[in-house]
């Protein structure tokens, strides 16, 4: 009977633990997708002007990294500013809508109706109004990010148990106290759910803004590279864009954990939610 040296199985099991690590799983899946992409191109002989090879994209990413990073800055700023605007105005609108039936009956149907307007169609209008530059991008990001915040926050504010409100009122709590001590913290998980949807949409909004009227940003890079059939550059810009989305989402997730550690979804260590 051969006796294994104790170091080897433990090293093996350590490798096993590593492969099972939560953060590695999406990475492994990503590698699988890239391989699939490569194989598909080879098998079906897809020409590079339709889909670029993964290695070309990687090379472009490597070479154009400084440019892409520089172009990512205005896009990120527009995204974050648009997102912050939709967070502030979204929650404020939700407070009004949830707080008053009258306001709700006037505003809410129109708000839902306005969502069926394709925002991409009105983005050029912003350029007409505000010219080229930051403002139309920020507005476009805001417009896309606003609605999910309102819907989630309204739902959050409205889901406070009526008994809880009675209890607070019986304690002689004023309206503002009820909002501060009960309704607002109660709505936090729902608000964060809305904010997470909102931030990814804000990235889209910023890019749409750059599509229609901008001389910088990743949206501009995307449009120019499509025009010039520089598909590797376009794909590289898409990769950077997704990275922005992931990082912003992850930051938001971190803030959520710090702000609502009491919520059921935060009680055990979760895998990376992004």
């Amino acid at each position: 009977m051969a006796v294994n040296p104790p170091a080897r199985p433990s090293a093996l099991s350590r490798l096993g633990t590593l492969l099972n690590a939560a953060w590695l799983r999406p990475v492994l899946f990503l590698v699988f997708l890239v391989v699939l992409w490569d194989v598909t191109i080879r098998v079906f002989r897809i020409p590079p002007y339709q889909i670029p090879k993964p290695e070309d994209v990687l090379v472009t990413l490597w070479n154009d990294w400084p440019t892409l990073l520089r172009q990512a800055i205005p896009t990120t700023i527009a995204t974050v500013e648009g997102f912050l605007l939709s967070a502030v105005f979204g929650v404020a609108a939700a407070v009004l809508i949830a707080g008053s039936r009258t306001i709700e009956s006037y505003v809410y149907p129109l708000l839902v109706f306005s969502q069926s307007i394709p925002k991409i169609a009105i983005a050029p209008l912003f350029v007409v109004w505000f010219g080229f530059g930051m403002l139309p991008k920020v507005l476009s990001a805001f417009l896309l990010g606003f609605f999910p915040v309102v819907v989630s926050a309204v739902q959050g504010f409205k889901s406070v148990e009526p008994d809880m409100l009675d209890l607070a009122r019986a304690m002689e709590a004023k309206r503002l106290q009820i909002f501060r001590m009960v309704a607002f913290p109660h709505a936090m998980p729902a608000i964060f759910a809305g904010l997470k949807v909102s931030i990814t949409l804000a990235v889209v909004g910023a890019v749409v803004g750059e599509f229609v009227g901008s001389n910088d940003g990743l949206g501009f890079v995307l449009q120019r590279s499509i025009g010039n059939f520089e598909l590797p550059t376009m794909f590289a810009a898409l990769v950077v864009l997704s990275l922005i989305g992931v990082v912003l989402f992850w930051v938001l997730d971190l803030i959520e954990r710090m702000m609502i550690p009491w919520h059921a979804s935060q009680r055990h260590d979760l895998v990376i939610a992004a």
């Binding site: 008994d163 209890l167 019986a170 002689e172 001590m181 009960v182 913290p185 009491w262 919520h263």
Partner: peptide
Amino acid sequence: GIVFQTALLLPWRNVLSNVMMPVEVK
């Protein structure tokens, strides 16, 4: 003072802080 069928404690407050809520409100 009122007690309802469900405890209606605020999950973001600890036990003492929940008990102290009427004191804070008033």
